[in-house]
Simulated scan of single mutants.
Amino acid sequence: MLFMQMLVPPPPAYSDDQGSSGNGASTFSMFAPLDGIPTQLIDELALQLPQQGNRPFSATLLMPNLGKVQIRAQKRDSHWDIELGLERADVLERLTKHHGACQQAFAEALDHDVELRLQPTGPA
Rank of each mutant, 00 (worst) to 15 (best):
residue 55 R to F: 10
residue 79 H to N: 03
residue 50 P to K: 09
residue 95 L to C: 08
residue 86 L to I: 14
residue 74 Q to P: 00
residue 75 K to C: 00
residue 70 Q to P: 05
residue 81 D to M: 02
residue 83 E to D: 09
residue 78 S to Q: 13
residue 80 W to M: 00
residue 70 Q to K: 10
residue 94 R to W: 15
residue 47 L to Q: 10
residue 84 L to N: 07
residue 60 T to V: 14
residue 54 N to G: 05
residue 84 L to A: 07
residue 59 A to R: 13
residue 90 D to G: 00
residue 69 V to G: 06
residue 56 P to V: 09
residue 64 P to K: 06
residue 61 L to D: 11
residue 46 A to P: 13
residue 93 E to Y: 01
residue 54 N to T: 13
residue 60 T to L: 09
residue 76 R to Y: 01
residue 74 Q to H: 04
residue 66 L to G: 14
residue 49 L to N: 04
residue 70 Q to E: 13
residue 82 I to Y: 02
residue 89 A to I: 01
residue 68 K to T: 14
residue 62 L to H: 15
residue 79 H to W: 02
residue 48 Q to E: 14
residue 63 M to T: 14
residue 72 R to I: 07
residue 76 R to H: 04
residue 51 Q to N: 15
residue 88 R to C: 01
residue 50 P to Y: 03
residue 69 V to A: 10
residue 70 Q to T: 11
residue 59 A to K: 14
residue 96 T to Y: 01
residue 70 Q to C: 09
residue 89 A to K: 02
residue 66 L to W: 10
residue 92 L to A: 06
residue 71 I to C: 10
residue 97 K to M: 10
residue 64 P to V: 10
residue 72 R to L: 10
residue 87 E to R: 02
residue 50 P to A: 09
residue 73 A to I: 07
residue 96 T to D: 06
residue 84 L to G: 04
residue 81 D to W: 00
residue 61 L to N: 11
residue 57 F to T: 02
residue 89 A to C: 00
residue 93 E to S: 04
residue 52 Q to P: 02
residue 47 L to M: 10
residue 47 L to W: 08
residue 96 T to C: 03
residue 67 G to T: 04
residue 88 R to N: 10
residue 93 E to P: 00
residue 77 D to C: 05
residue 63 M to L: 14
residue 81 D to K: 03
residue 90 D to C: 00
residue 49 L to W: 04
residue 86 L to A: 05
residue 96 T to E: 05
residue 67 G to C: 08
residue 60 T to Q: 14
residue 73 A to Q: 06
residue 57 F to A: 05
residue 68 K to V: 13
residue 47 L to A: 05
residue 77 D to M: 08
residue 77 D to L: 07
residue 50 P to D: 08
residue 56 P to L: 09
residue 65 N to Y: 12
residue 68 K to E: 12
residue 65 N to D: 15
residue 63 M to I: 15
residue 83 E to S: 14
residue 53 G to A: 03
residue 91 V to W: 04
residue 84 L to S: 05
residue 53 G to W: 01
residue 69 V to F: 11
residue 72 R to H: 14
residue 64 P to D: 09
residue 88 R to M: 06
residue 97 K to P: 02
residue 67 G to I: 06
residue 90 D to F: 00
residue 57 F to G: 04
residue 97 K to R: 06
residue 58 S to G: 14
residue 49 L to E: 07
residue 78 S to F: 12
residue 93 E to T: 02
residue 83 E to M: 13
residue 55 R to I: 06
residue 62 L to F: 13
residue 47 L to D: 09
residue 78 S to G: 08
residue 55 R to Q: 15
residue 95 L to P: 04
residue 48 Q to I: 15
